[in-house]
Design a protein around this nucleic acid. Structure first.
Length: 189
DNA sequence: CTGGCGATGAACT
DNA sequence: GTTCATCGCCAGC
């Protein structure tokens, strides 16, 4: 198993968001591996990014974004859902994270179906993916560069520049001019 | 297929 | 009080 180490995340957040496409997110839960290929991400930086939780500095909620790279940042949104990020930034940034928005389910699909209470659309959205993988605030701040309950591996899938699209990020009223959402089109779930 | 809307908590003005 | 890095249901094409 080829776990991605912290040097991968110690680069520009936008670059890391692009390079995470094609990597595999692994959730080890109740003795079962639930995995999926990452195929949609968004980059969030800090004081240079009005749409980022870290824009106004460190708070209790976003403190993980200021912590070690390669760790998880899980937050609760709209009173209903959790969203999973990986902390990533270059030296000069104080904070930054990549939102994982969508997965192509691979292993443990029956468990995802049970967690989601449906058979399809298991992980094609940030709130859906955390539900499918049973990720809550308890998984906030986990070191995802170590084998454990949550980590990311490289299975050798190459996603070239021509294989993905760049668009404005979803659900924002601010900063719609930067194309920091990346996704691989043509999903088949 | 599309659009409207309620659910419901945390952070901020 | 308002906004928010969302989702699923329902109505109406």
């Amino acid at each position: 198993m080829n776990i991605i180490d912290s040097s991968f995340y110690k680069r520009d957040t936008v670059l890391v968001a692009q390079d995470l496409l094609g990597k595999t997110l692994v959730r080890y839960y109740n003795g079962i591996y639930v995995t999926g290929i990452i195929h949609e991400t968004e980059a969030y930086r800090c004081s240079d990014d009005p749409a980022s939780h870290a824009y106004r500095g460190k708070t209790q909620r976003n403190s993980a974004m200021f912590g070690p790279v390669g760790h998880s940042y899980v937050y609760f949104i709209y009173g209903v859902h959790f969203c999973l990020n990986v902390v990533a930034r270059s030296q000069e940034l104080q904070a930054g994270a990549v939102l994982i928005r969508s997965l192509l389910p691979m292993q443990g699909i029956p468990l995802m179906q049970k967690a989601r209470k449906r058979m399809t659309n298991l992980a094609n959205g940030p709130g859906k993916l955390t539900q499918a993988l049973c990720i809550t605030r308890e998984q906030n701040g986990i070191d995802m560069t170590q084998e454990g309950q949550l980590f990311i591996v490289d299975t050798g899938i190459i996603v070239n520049k021509k294989d993905y699209r760049s668009t404005p990020r979803i659900g924002l009223s601010m900063a719609q001019d930067v194309l920091w959402r990346f996704y691989v089109p043509n999903n088949a779930y």
